[in-house]
Amino acid sequence: MKKFKAAVVAIVTMAGLAVAATPAQAADTCSAGGGGKYICDYGVTKHSLPNGEKEQFLVGLDYAVWTRWTVNQKWTSWVSMGMPAPVGTARAASSIEVTSGDNQGNFQTWITLLNSNGATVGKMRPALGANWYTWDFPNCC
Rank of each mutant, 00 (worst) to 15 (best):
A26F: 11
P23E: 14
K3C: 09
A127Y: 04
N131K: 12
S48F: 01
L58I: 07
R91H: 07
L17I: 15
Q73H: 10
V87F: 06
S95G: 06
N139E: 14
H47A: 02
I111T: 01
G105P: 08
V12F: 15
V59Y: 07
N51T: 04
P50T: 01
F137M: 11
G82L: 07
Q73R: 13
P23H: 11
T45V: 10
L61A: 07
G129S: 07
C141S: 11
T76D: 01
G122H: 03
D41F: 11
A18G: 14
D41G: 09
W75R: 01
A21T: 13
S94L: 07
K123T: 06
D41A: 13
A127P: 03
K46R: 06
D41K: 10
G52Q: 07
F107L: 04
E53I: 00
W75F: 01
G33W: 09
V87G: 09
R125G: 02
G16F: 15
V59P: 05
G82W: 10
A26S: 14
A119T: 08
T109V: 08
K37C: 06
P126T: 04
I11S: 15
E55M: 05
V19N: 11
N131D: 11
A24Q: 14
Q25G: 14
T29R: 09
V121K: 07
N106A: 13
S80P: 05
D62T: 13
L113F: 04
A21F: 13
F137Y: 13
Q73A: 15
L49I: 01
N106Q: 13
D28N: 11
G129K: 03
W66V: 01
Y42Q: 09
A20R: 14
A92H: 03
L114C: 06
Y63E: 04
G60V: 04
P138I: 14
A10P: 10
A6F: 05
V121M: 09
K46G: 09
V9G: 12
S77K: 03
N103H: 13
T70A: 00
V87N: 08
G16S: 15
M83L: 08
W66R: 01
N139D: 13
V8P: 06
L61N: 12
S77V: 02
I111E: 00
A20V: 15
W69H: 00
N51G: 03
A24V: 13
T109Y: 02
N117L: 02
C141P: 10
D28W: 06
V98F: 08
A21I: 10
P84D: 07
M1H: 03
G122Q: 03
G43V: 06
V12P: 10
K74W: 00
T67N: 05
S31W: 05
M124A: 04
E53G: 01
F4C: 05
G34Y: 02
Q73G: 15
K123P: 04
